[in-house]
């Protein structure tokens, strides 16, 4: 018994593991809450685009010797607002606008980085994530932005629900639909920034989409989806860090793959919505 407890306790005897867990769990919770809207609005593509776009800002900030988060945050926010602006004009399709802008911003990042002499360490942490390398100042930034995002969602829950579910009716009821939709994009951009160091540009979309999608299979309401998605995201962080510790593998990849495994399990076995359940019901229904 004591071996089991030692096994479970060992990783957390190190400060960088505790710090990494705090950052990863908080980011997963925020990402699942914002990600619930991302899923229901079919915004997964933009959820993948903003982290990539932020790379342009990260690279410019790196070249100028400025804070990489601030650079990435500005780039993500500007891209989100530009996507919203262009697609609201109605001439260019929404997904086309996303495709043009995020690749452009990403290419800007590649261009800037190609002029740098030694870019390996810090920048690669942003591309592939390195949650075990976060500093306490990174963690506090994550806590601050994360709690702010959660507070805004809680405060404007009613408006976000209405405009996500039925934007036409929300506009007819006099709600400022455009502002609320821009606000959701801004929340997504902020979530992207704090998720960057945890899982890296390439894997941010997994934190946004996977735990919330798993929760969608298991719950019947938006609130339930957010709460369970947050819990599953945090659980993925814990399990992923154990796997990283004992398997000596990338923590971000382990966190994402844990979330993916949870999704596959729910997809197969979820009551009512899982495919095995549906198959069993189909057989029971046929004579």
């Amino acid at each position: 018994m004591s071996e089991v407890i030692d096994f479970l306790k060992e990783p957390w005897t190190f400060e960088f593991m505790r710090r990494g867990l705090l950052a990863a769990a908080l980011v997963s919770v925020v990402a699942a809450v914002v990600g619930s809207f991302v899923i229901l609005k079919g915004m997964a593509f933009i959820g993948d685009a903003l982290p990539h776009a932020s790379f342009g800002g990260v690279a410019v900030a790196f070249a100028l010797g400025e804070n990489l988060y601030v650079g990435g945050g500005i780039a993500a926010l500007v891209t989100a607002l530009l996507i919203g602006f262009i697609s609201r004009r109605g001439v260019i399709r929404h997904d086309t606008a996303i495709g043009i802008l995020f690749v452009g911003m990403f290419a800007l990042g590649v261009l800037v980085v190609s002029r740098q002499q030694n870019y390996t360490g810090d920048l690669f942490a942003f591309v592939f994530g390195n949650v075990l390398a976060v500093s306490w100042s990174d963690v506090w930034l994550t806590v601050g932005i994360g709690l702010a995002v959660l507070a805004v969602v809680a405060l404007f829950y009613k408006e976000l629900l209405f405009t996500s579910y039925d934007p036409t009716m929300a506009a007819a009821a006099g709600l400022p639909v455009a502002s609320i939709q821009y606000g959701l994009l801004a929340l997504l951009a902020l979530t992207t920034v704090i998720a960057l160091q945890t899982v890296g540009i390439v894997l941010v979309v997994a934190l946004l989409v996977t735990p919330a999608a798993t929760a969608q299979l298991l719950t019947r309401s938006l609130r339930g989806m957010m709460a369970l998605g947050a819990a599953l995201g945090a659980a993925s962080s814990v399990v992923g860090l154990y796997i990283a510790w004992y398997g000596d593998v990338s923590a971000s990849a382990a966190i994402v793959l844990t979330a993916t495994a949870m999704f596959l399990a729910a997809f197969l076995f979820a009551p009512a919505k899982g495919i095995l359940w549906r198959g069993a019901q189909g057989r029971a229904a046929s004579p």
Partner: peptide, 24 residues
């Protein structure tokens, strides 16, 4: 209308009040 959205019938009807309730 997005019929797959996870909202209850009561929530949908309550949205009729949202314009009057005001922000936040």
């Amino acid at each position: 209308v997005d019929w797959a959205f996870p909202v209850s019938v009561a929530e949908v009807v309550l949205m009729g009040r949202y314009g009057k309730i005001g922000l936040v």
